[in-house]
């Protein structure tokens, strides 16, 4: 029998995306000791970015939840 529960469906695949304000972005960049341009990238054309109407240069917080726990991952919006 198929193990239905193990398949990650769409709603489980997409973590919550949240736009980070410019002042908050400065704090985050200080916390990690890395300029925000060096954060992992996300393309402007990405469906989730389009949904938030984020512009290149902004930071997006991704609220991830997986077997290792809950954590926030950041991605920097770049032109595609």
């Amino acid at each position: 029998m198929l193990t239905v529960c193990l398949l990650p469906y769409a709603y489980e695949l997409i973590p919550e995306h949240e736009l980070v304000s410019a002042s908050e972005a400065v704090k985050i960049s200080k916390k990690f000791g890395v300029p925000i341009e060096k954060f992992p990238k996300i393309l402007e054309s990405d469906p989730q970015v389009a949904k938030l109407a984020a512009k290149p240069g902004q930071l997006i917080a991704i609220h991830r939840e997986d077997p290792t726990g809950k954590y926030i991952y950041y991605r920097y919006v770049v032109r595609s």
Partner: peptide
Amino acid sequence: EVMRVYGIEAARTLIAH
């Protein structure tokens, strides 16, 4: 295809899973 429809984060979750 998951990346095109749902975005890069969904693709990342799928790769890991």
